[in-house]
């Protein structure tokens, strides 16, 4: 378990990992947060949670990441975690075409349950298995462009692009937040607070200690 000094950050972003069962969500998370890959990993039952802090523009940005079970019926439990999330990694397995075909349904799930301004990144995982590839990069890229998603291909097994994927989405969220005029930002915050009950994007004010809250 990582024992973080919890106050040691400037921004806190909540991210969710979603996608079909077995596409590698949990291993992407453990690769990013602990630099671990587990060949003997268990199926995720419900939700799991991990954090990692990175630097952007000299600021410490902390990601609170929720990893979710992939089976469809689990959305009854996991969709509660979309609320208040500012980013989502929508993951498919490049060797399993059905996991790509299901992306539309996952996007609908996000539209129904997440905040409208959530940043979504499409992630094609398992590129180490190139000989088994069934989703061409170009097909996925086109899908991401059509739906205005960020796009990257990764391998949690050999680490390719994992760090980059998380950094890119966190950067994007950070930039988006900087761009927003104050009142709009407030509005967003408010909507998050009222819908999720807890504050997720937190910018620290000098001298005002902020109580950290999780959310669901």
């Amino acid at each position: 378990m990582t024992v973080d000094l919890q106050d040691d950050y400037d921004y806190l972003f909540k991210i969710v990992l979603i996608g079909d069962s077995g596409v590698g969500k949990s291993n992407l998370l453990s690769r990013f947060c602990r630099n671990e890959f587990n060949l003997e990993s268990k199926s995720t039952i419900g939700v799991e949670f991990a954090t990692k802090a990175i630097q952007i523009d000299g600021k410490t940005v902390k990601a609170q990441i929720w990893d979710t079970a992939g089976q469809e019926r689990y959305r009854a439990i996991t969709s509660a975690y979309y609320r208040g999330a500012v980013g989502a990694l929508l993951i498919y397995d490049i060797t399993k075409h059905p996991s790509f075909e299901n992306l539309e349904r996952w996007l609908q799930e996000l539209r129904d349950n997440a905040d409208s301004n959530i940043v979504i990144m499409l992630v094609g995982n398992k590129i180490d298995l190139r000989h088994l590839r069934s989703v061409p990069t170009e097909q996925a890229r086109k899908f991401s462009e059509d739906h205005k998603l960020l796009f990257i291909e990764t391998s949690a097994l050999d680490s390719t692009n994992v760090e980059l994927a998380f950094q890119t989405i966190l950067n994007d969220i950070y930039k988006l937040m900087m761009k927003k005029p104050d009142d709009e930002e407030k509005q967003i915050k408010q909507s998050i607070q009222t819908s999720g009950g807890t504050q997720v994007v937190i910018q620290k004010e000098p001298d005002t200690p902020i109580k950290k809250k999780g959310c669901c």
């Binding site: 039952i45 419900g46 939700v47 799991e48 949670f49 079970a69 439990i77 509660a80 009950g197 807890t198 809250k213 999780g214 959310c215 669901c216």
Partner: peptide, 12 residues
């Protein structure tokens, strides 16, 4: 107070 809800660990 810490917003740790039972559904966060209950499924496991």
């Amino acid at each position: 107070e810490q917003s740790v809800m039972s559904q966060m660990y209950g499924s496991r």
